[in-house]
């Protein structure tokens, strides 16, 4: 019991420093609280520090509250999202994003109704990992927000939920959002299997013509992830993309789809100047397993890059079964 007494004494001393006139001292007290052993005693004290008059103390408390999942603390952190000091709001958002228990979702969803801007984006980000059904409706609504970060965060929630009903609205953003980063996330968020292919395919095809290469890259990857045979002609077209990075992902997807139609473009890519693409083309040709690729692959056995040579050899053995 001695230990417990010592510990209480230690915590009392820290609590006393928590009301010291010097904010520096209060801030250190917050840090020290986390090293004590009784989380039940610590939580209320940290919550109190979250209301401190000094922003540096509030920020430290918001950081320290990561990992606490009680309703009082979540409410406190939600309030702190609107703190006048940006470092406090940022720390609170960070701690909320670490929430793991789905039951905390209700509080977050409720708070969404009046939230705006940074606050709203932060709550949506916190909801993403929780995957609670109640977040579907508000996330769909948030797709119309004027703030890019809010729409991006809402897409995060919808992508993780993998809800079929969200496919249409996500597809709209994938093709027509004004922010490239939002379009990219939307394209990726379409990549779940239960989705209605007829709604997804046109959106992915449109995204293949996006002016930003990272959106195109996401689109060819998603076509591969979903195993969409209907996407093959478009992937073949993407093998002509001006960015080799896009071609590389297209090659990977064509390999996954075992597309025989792609043998000519993949064979051509075996001799592209960037060896990363040559490697991927060799892998894909092995996966497709079409004998028409043999001459090109045999030529690739002389490639100056050892990785390309090895992968061409492996592809040849996959095709010939030897």
């Amino acid at each position: 019991m001695n230990e417990l007494a010592n510990q209480n004494e230690e915590i009392s001393a820290i609590l006393a420093r928590l009301i010291d006139p010097d904010p520096g001292v209060r801030r250190i007290a917050v840090l020290d609280l986390l090293d004590t052993d009784d989380y039940d005693l610590v939580a209320p004290a940290l919550l109190q520090a979250l209301g401190d008059q000094d922003a540096s103390v509030r920020a430290e408390a918001a950081i320290a509250l990561e990992g606490f999942e009680t309703p009082e603390i979540i409410r406190g952190l939600l309030m702190a999202l609107t703190d006048e000091a940006p470092e406090v709001a940022k720390a609170a958002a960070q701690s909320l994003a670490e929430l793991k228990s789905p039951v905390t979702g209700v509080l977050l969803v409720t708070a969404l109704s009046t939230a705006k801007g940074f606050q709203k984006a932060s709550i949506l980000r916190a909801l993403r990992e929780l995957r609670v059904p109640a977040s579907l409706a508000p996330a769909l609504a948030a797709l119309n927000d004027t703030d890019d970060t809010v729409r991006a965060a809402a897409l995060g929630v919808l992508g993780y939920l993998k809800a079929p009903s969200a496919v249409g609205p996500i597809a709209v953003l994938a093709t027509s959002d004004k922010a490239p980063q939002v379009r990219r996330i939307a394209v990726g968020a379409l990549g779940f299997e239960a989705a209605d292919l007829s709604a997804i395919l046109p959106a992915l095809i449109t995204a293949l013509r996006d002016e930003f290469w990272q959106v195109r890259e996401e689109s060819v990857a998603t076509l591969g992830k979903l195993g969409m045979d209907q996407g093959v002609p478009y992937l073949i077209e993407a093998m002509m993309d001006e960015y080799w990075q896009v071609r590389l992902k297209a090659a990977r997807s064509l390999g996954k789809l075992r597309s025989r139609e792609a043998v000519p473009v993949l064979s051509k890519a075996l001799f592209h100047q960037v060896s990363n693409l040559r490697k991927e083309a060799a892998v894909a040709l092995g996966e497709v397993g079409d004998a028409r690729a043999i001459p090109a692959l045999e030529k690739a056995l002389q490639d100056p890059d050892p990785d390309v040579r090895k992968l061409a050899g492996l592809a040849l053995s996959q095709i010939t079964g030897k």
Binding site: R17, D22, G24, V25, R27, I28, L31, D32
Partner: peptide
């Protein structure tokens, strides 16, 4: 540095 306020981080 706020070591004078008890910081030893």
């Amino acid at each position: 540095c706020i070591a004078d306020k008890g910081c030893t981080v």
